[in-house]
Structures are given as C-alpha cells and as structure tokens.
C-alpha cells in the first residue's frame, strides 16, 4: 500500500513536470504560429510602426520648459505601455476564444492538461510581448541619442518586463474567464484604451487634475510607464514626475500587489469557469457562432 502510494506520488510529480515541459513546447509553438501568421504579424508590427510615425512628427519638439526631445520622453512610456497592453488584453481575449472553440475542454480532458495550457499561455504572451518590445527598436532609433542606455537600463527593463508580466497576465486570465463569449472581450480593449488616458504615457500625469492622477496611479499602465522612464531617461528628467521621484519602491510594490491579486483570483475563476465547460457548452457556442457569426 505505502509502496504503491509512493509510486503514485512519484508518477504524479513526473506527470506535472512532463506537463510543464509540454507547456513550454506549447508556448513556443504558439508563438511561432503567431509570428508566422500574417494577421498576427501585422498586429505585432502595427503599433511600433505607428509609434515610429508619431515620434517622427515629434522631431524638433521639446518637453515644455526644457530642451529635452519630446519623442525621447514618450518612447520609454511606450515600452511600459506595450508591456501592460500585451499582458492585460492578450490573455483575456485568447482565454475567451479558447473556451468557445473547445481548447480549454481539450486541456481538461488531458492529464494535467490545464497546467500545460497555463504554462504555454504565459510563455506565449511573454514571448510575443517581447517581440513587440524588440520591434520598438525601430522607432527608438530616431531618439536613441537622447536616451540613457547602459547596463542598468537593460537590467531594470528586464526586471520591469518580468514583474509587468506577472502583474498583468493573471489578472487578464481572470477577466477573460468572466466573459461569456469571445465577442465581449472587445470591452476589455475599450477599457484598456480608456485607462491609457490618465496613465501619463502620452501626456504628463502631473498636468492632469488630481483625481484623475489617482485613477491613473491605481492601474499598472502608469507604473510600468514610470518604470520604463526611470530605466531609460536621464536622471534630470525626474522633475517631470509626481513628487519629482522615480518612486522605484512604490512601483514594484503596486505591481507586486496587482500580481498577488491576480495570482489569487486567476486559479479560482479559471477553475470555476473550466468546471462549467463541457462538450455541450462548446457545441452551443459553435451553434451560436454558426448562426450569428460571432
């Protein structure tokens, strides 16, 4: 009996590891499919190209009251925004889609399949967001001269990227599980866009009314933008920030809080949602899809 129990436990551990490794393969394959698919590639490239154009137009403009190039000020904010946007909107919409087309149910029917699925998703969003960041090099070239780029920059950026992913992906997974159908995730895009307004990314947050500043500071957009600015801007630019400080500690604290909330909520919501999934709900979604087209 005890010998069997030990074997069972060892099998269970082996099986979890196998699922994690399979999940990494999944993340890699899905990233590959995504990058090789023209529609996704356009989506990945569209924003950096738009940013590049925006930055080109900003040439010659300076941050009011200084002689610092406006474009160089905006670029780091864009880095922060890309992390937040990739982490917040991507997982939610794929979860909703995967639920409708039966991908989640397939994961449920596979031993430890949910674990593999989640590992795969996290890796995929990390990789595709990273691709989006690398593509930001295109617009960055136009303002690179003004930026502070050294070892500290890249270390801090890597750290912000990791914390940003952990702070946004679980929350997004939880949100995505709440939506009833894939078409509803459009609301999430809309919400994200609205939150960018008070985020201090395109417009200095210090110029906003105070209540709006507080709204902005409640969400990861502002903090990821701030973090990226602290990594890439020269020290003198700190004067444009709230309290004339990069507030590095507060940044990690707020993002950490989001991460904790997300990690607590996501498994609960996901499990609850997955329990309701069955062949007939997937079939019903398919019928609705065939009948109405969404």
């Amino acid at each position: 009996m005890t010998a069997t129990a030990t074997t069972d436990r060892r099998t269970q551990n082996d099986a979890r590891w196998a699922a994690v490794r399979a999940g990494l393969t999944r993340g890699w394959l899905e990233t590959k499919y995504s990058i090789l698919s023209p529609s996704d590639l356009i989506w990945i490239l569209a924003f950096p190209v738009i940013y590049a154009v925006v930055l080109l137009f900003m040439r010659g403009s300076t941050v009011p009251g200084t002689d610092f190039a406006l474009g160089a000020m905006v670029l780091p904010s864009l880095v922060g925004m890309s992390i937040a946007f990739g982490g917040l909107t991507g997982p939610a919409s794929t979860i909703a889609v995967d639920r409708e087309d039966g991908t989640l149910l397939r994961a449920k029917a596979t031993p430890n399949g949910m674990l593999g699925y989640l590992v795969g998703k996290i890796l995929m969003f990390a990789l595709t967001t990273l691709v989006g960041l690398i593509v930001l090099v295109i617009p960055a070239v136009t303002v690179a001269g003004e930026l502070r780029l050294d070892g500290r920059t890249f270390l801090l950026l890597a750290l912000i990227f990791l914390v940003g992913m952990v702070a946004t992906v679980p929350i997004s997974v939880a949100l995505g599980s709440l939506f009833k159908s894939a078409s509803q995730t459009g609301l999430l895009f809309l919400g994200s866009m609205l939150l960018i307004v008070p985020s201090g990314i395109f417009y200095p947050i210090t110029a906003l009314p105070e209540w709006l500043q507080w709204v902005g500071q409640a969400f990861p957009y502002y903090w990821l933008g701030l973090g990226a600015r602290s990594a890439m801007l020269p020290e003198s630019m700190v004067t444009a920030e709230i309290g004339e400080s990069w507030r590095t500690f507060e940044m990690f604290a707020v993002l950490g809080l989001w991460a904790v909330v997300g990690m607590v909520l996501a498994p609960i919501v996901l499990r609850r949602m997955a329990r309701r999934e069955s062949g007939s709900t997937v079939a019903a979604a398919r019928e609705r899809y065939m009948a109405k087209g969404y």
Binding site: D8, T11, Q12, A15, D98, E100, D101, G102, T103, L105, R106, A109, T110, P111, N112, G279, S280, V282, A283, R286
Partner: peptide, 17 residues
C-alpha cells in the same frame, strides 16, 4: 489525473487548435 490518463475523450466540438 492518473485516472484521466486512462481515458480517451472524443468531444463533439471540432474548432480547437
């Protein structure tokens, strides 16, 4: 999960992956 590994399920759905 060990029990799940001994089962095969062919769902009605066919849009995934």
């Amino acid at each position: 999960e060990a029990w799940r590994a001994r089962l095969g399920v062919v769902l009605q759905s066919w849009r995934d992956h």
